[in-house]
Structures are given as C-alpha cells and as structure tokens.
Design a protein around this nucleic acid. Structure first.
Lengths: 187, 187
DNA sequence: CTCATGTGAGACATTCATGTCTCACCACAC
DNA sequence: GTGTGGTGAGACATGAATGTCTCACATGAG
C-alpha cells in the first residue's frame, strides 16, 4: 500500500475515535513523520476533504448498487423488491459507517460547502427512495419521508457509538439497525 | 437577566448551529465584549463545562420526573404506566434537545472525564428503565436494552438535525420521535 | 558504485484562539 | 456632584497547530 493510502486509512480509523486529532496525531497514527503527511496533502483541509470525498463516493456507490438495481426516485413499485432493497441498504450503511463513521458528524465536513452540496444531493436521492417505499406501502406514510431519512442517519450514529463503546457486538449490528428502523422498539 | 445568564443562553443557542465557535464568536453571539466573557468564565473549558453540567442537570431532572414518578431500575411493572412514562420521557427529551442539542455530540464534553462519568451513570439509569419496560412487555426484548438507549440517543440527534435544517416542523416533533422509537418506519 | 526517490527528524516562521491586562466609559446609587 | 461596579475596546503575551524548509538516511534501479 502506498504511503498516501496508508495515511488515509490510518486517519480514517483514528478520526472515528478521536475526532479532534491534530495532524501530528494522524501522522503518528499512520506511523509516518509529520512532514510526510504534508508531502501528500497540502493541509489538513485537503486530507479531510479527501476522506470526505471518499465517504461520499462510498455512499453514492451504495445507493447505486443496493438491492442489485440501486436506489432512486424511479424505483420499482414492487413491495417485496423495495423491502429487500431497504434491507440491503441498511446492511451496506452499517458496513460503511464502520469505515466512515467519523464523517457522519465531522464538524469540518459538515461546514464544507462542497461536501454539504454533494451530501444533500445524495440525501435527497435516498429520501426519494423512501417516498417510493411509502407509496408501495412498505414504509408508513403518516410521517414525512425526509424524517425517515434523518431517522436512519440518527440510527447510524447510534450504531457507531454503540460499537465504539463496545455496547453491542459488530456481528449482527446490521440486523439490529434494520429491525429498529422498521419495527422500532415496541414489543 | 444577568450578563452571565445571557452569555450562557446565547452560547447554548449558537453552539447548536456552530459547534466549533470560538470564544470571540460566542461573545459576539451574546452581544458582549470578549473580555466580558472571560470575566465570568475563566476559560472556554469552564464555559463549556457549565453548559455541559446544565445539560446533565436537565437530563437528570427529566429522569427524575418523567411520567410523574420518575425513571429508574425499580420502576413499576405496570405496562400501561411504563408506556405513559416512555411517552413522557420522549416528549421531554425532544424539548431538552431543543436547548441542549449541541451537548449530544460536542467533542469537548464527550472527551471530558467528569462529564462522561455523569453521562454514563444517567445512561445506565435510563437503560435500566428500558430493561424494566422489556420485562413488562412494553419494549421488545429480542434486542439489548442498551441498544434501545443508543437508538433513542441517535433519534434525538436526528431530530436536532432535522430541526436545524428545517426539514420538519418543531410542532409535533415529539410525536414523530416517539412513534419512530416505538413502531419504527414500517407501514 | 551512483544516482534518484521517498522518508524521518527537526528547525523555523506563521497563524489563530486563547487568556491577561489596562483604560475609558456609562449607568446608577449615594 | 461623586464614587462604584460592570462593561467595551483594544493592546499584549502565550501556546498549540499548522505549514515550510533543510539535511541526513535508507532503499532500490540503473
């Protein structure tokens, strides 16, 4: 693995547990000198920006491939297929949050205009899918689809935190999130 | 209102939208000089610590009074009462997150040993309540109670974000969170 | 061997938030 | 009027993170 990749990978992992890590911290986490980090990334913004872009790439890829056909406003109206797609989507999201969990709440990324614009476009695409699922009777339609989008986001944050604190096992976490998204917590 | 209270109130509100705000930002948000802030709070840590303590006070107060009797491990086994208590708890949490939403994800507070210890104690108390609700058949018992605790936390983060972005109206948000916690998003 | 490349270590300057201090001002009580 | 307390504005110092630069070293290709 190239040094650049090693830095990105280590930073990704380290930022999940230490969101306020300095460049020196990230360099140490990657096992390289601080100057080496600056050779590959002009500054902290560029490093974070690269990680943010990758997290968005992953998100987009997930939306493109979830359920085989991908996710979008022109989704099928077949309830069973939508259900399966939703299932796959959550499984992929949990896996993604394992790698890019820090991006869910990172202050710098949330404040970056470029990142926010892309994130909002992907979010709207996801919400359009939830709307399709509502029309097909897969998701309840007495709440705004955009709220379902936010709720899924919140549950991914919850999953990341539960994992970080060791409160739940990694194995099976995707089923936990999926059933919570669908059925909630009532008996 | 005293200047000190004005600073705290303004900082609370400002931090929800700008988590990385500097002392100068917070002073400007309160409409006072930067020196005045330092007259009342020795440093940023003290200001944030005070806000964090207040958010924990609010949380504790909510646990003490939710459902009239409060929330704890020795809760009643009466299902209907537990349901009502859960309802009240969520309503209060949503109201609280309106004021102390920033505390849910603030990096400084999460890293503060004192704050974390108190937060964990309150969280455990809350989880004990969820366990009681599971035993009474109010909450599903095929998932760990601690996961329900994290899920509630995540949905409060979601509510804060949805509100911040103007995606849902403030009015009725507590019902939205409650029904999502209980029933999830399935039709 | 020789050279090019990438790296580690460290010195150095810069920037920014922070914290401290002084001084003038204003409102208010006396 | 006079004094007092709280404030605003700004100067100043400090520390941490950042960004730049140089030099020595290791590795691998030629």
């Amino acid at each position: 693995m190239s040094t650049r990749e090693a830095i990105l990978t280590a930073a990704q992992r380290h930022l999940t547990r230490h969101p306020a890590a300095s460049m020196a911290d990230l360099a140490a986490a990657a096992g390289v000198g601080r100057a080496t980090v600056h050779r590959h990334f002009a500054g902290r913004d560029e490093l974070l920006g690269e990680l943010g872009a990758r997290s968005l790439d992953r998100w987009e890829h997930t939306l493109d491939h979830a359920g085989g056909t991908g996710v979008g406003p022109a989704a099928t109206a077949d309830a069973e297929q939508l259900r399966a797609c939703l299932d796959d989507l959550m499984t992929r999201y949990v896996a993604d949050s394992d790698d890019f969990g820090f991006a869910l709440t990172d202050t710098f990324l949330l404040g970056s205009a470029e990142h926010s614009a892309r994130a909002q476009a992907l979010f709207e695409r996801e919400v359009a899918f939830y709307e399709a699922a509502q029309r097909a009777g897969v998701l309840r339609d007495d709440v705004p689809a955009v709220w379902i989008g936010h709720a899924v986001y919140g549950l991914l944050v919850a999953a990341r935190e539960a994992l970080r604190l060791g409160d739940v096992p990694r194995r099976g976490l995707d089923r936990l999130v999926l059933t919570t998204v669908l059925q909630g917590g009532a008996a």
